[in-house]
């Protein structure tokens, strides 16, 4: 464990807690893409298949349970909670996320480190996580203005993967044989997808104006 990875995990934890807090307190999911939340639940479900088979550390197991629990409860809130679901804008959240799932699955079947069920599922979860934010970014473009909780959520989500890139660089130089091209490339693609959002986020933060995304 290194400081970059720990900071990355804490940032990732903060992003899901910010979202849960928003939905739980103001009972609204305005501006939140259910599609992205469903994709994230799928990412965790396919990545943490080893939850009960490989014990790595208490921290690892605890964090996996938190990420699984939070992502599925966010999906539950938006889908089934009688008050929250009313604020879900399904006419705007129309990204066909199946068009993301299938290519990622095919790619995972083609490019992976070992052709086993667990390894393909894990690789699938990496590719899917890289693009899972797209429905949310599309929704933000459509609804133009975004409330700061959603802005913070997306920012933290992007920051966590950027910290993970520092973690991979650190581990590459400190651990022999630590080479995982698939992880690194999908993590880089993921961070680059946030890049333009980061740009506008910092612009609005610097000029102290409400975050407006160009249409």
């Amino acid at each position: 464990m290194n400081i970059f990875r720990f900071a990355g995990d804490m940032t990732h934890l903060a992003s899901v807690l910010v979202l849960l807090l928003k939905i739980h307190t103001i009972k609204s999911c305005a501006g939140i893409s259910l599609k992205t939340q469903e994709l994230y639940a799928l990412v965790f479900a396919t990545r943490y298949l080893d939850l009960f088979t490989d014990y790595i550390s208490l921290y690892n197991t605890l964090m996996k349970l938190i990420f699984l629990g939070s992502s599925f409860s966010i999906v539950w809130y938006i889908r089934y909670h009688k008050i929250v679901r009313r604020s879900y804008d399904k006419d705007q959240d129309t990204f066909r996320h199946y068009f993301l799932v299938l290519p990622c699955l095919l790619l995972a079947l083609l490019i992976n480190e070992k052709f086993t069920f667990r390894e393909v599922m894990w690789t699938f979860s990496l590719y899917l996580e890289a693009v899972a934010i797209l429905p949310q970014l599309v929704l933000l473009q459509r609804t133009r203005n975004i409330d700061n909780l959603t802005g913070q959520y997306v920012f933290l989500l992007g920051a966590y993967r950027a910290l993970y890139i520092l973690n991979w660089i650190y581990r590459y130089f400190t651990e022999p044989h630590y080479v995982h091209w698939i992880t690194w490339i999908s993590g880089l693609v993921q961070t680059l997808l946030y890049a333009d959002f980061f740009y506008y986020y910092f612009q609005s933060w610097k000029n102290n104006v409400k975050l407006e995304l160009p249409a």
Binding site: D50, I56, S57, M63, Y164
Partner: peptide, 10 residues
């Protein structure tokens, strides 16, 4: 023998 299997990251 690797101390941790490769999947030690979240």
């Amino acid at each position: 023998y690797q101390k941790h299997p490769k999947k030690d990251e979240l």
